[in-house]
Amino acid sequence: MLNDPKNYSENIKPFQPRIPYAANCVRAFLSGGLICLAGQFMETFYIHFFHFTKQSAGNPTVATLILLAALMTGIGVYDKIARFAGAGSIVPVTGFANSITSAALEHKSEGIVLGIATNLFSLAGEVIVFGVVSAAVLGIIRLFIEQFF
């Protein structure tokens, strides 16, 4: 019986489209993996030609990926890729660049200061907030423990 306001959200479950879990995961795996593979090529390049170490080569790699993702957002390609990739294009650092660039682009019409600059982190700010808060808390805990053990 669907005419039951109290249990409506339960009762309509058979009417909801089935999420293709497996296909979504395969697509996320392939696209996310490919982005990381591209990153690995860059890292190897930076290690060989610019003498970065394995630990520090992440920096120029991330910067390069961010540049590419920002450009792809600008020419309107990144959201098309994301349609296929799902989390595969959200989880890599390119997704971070996309959230920054897309927010800035969207508010461009409101001006450079009030539009682009103030909205740059409207989506990506949470990454920095959660990153800094968790790293600070964990850092304090670790320092505290190291002092005694």
């Binding site: 999420i19 959201d79 349609r83 990739a85 959200i90 660039t101 897309s102 927010a103 969207e106 989506l123």
Partner: peptide
């Protein structure tokens, strides 16, 4: 989301 944001698509 912003139009260029690569958010997920719900069916």
């Amino acid at each position: 989301y912003p139009t260029e944001y690569g958010g997920p698509m719900n069916l």
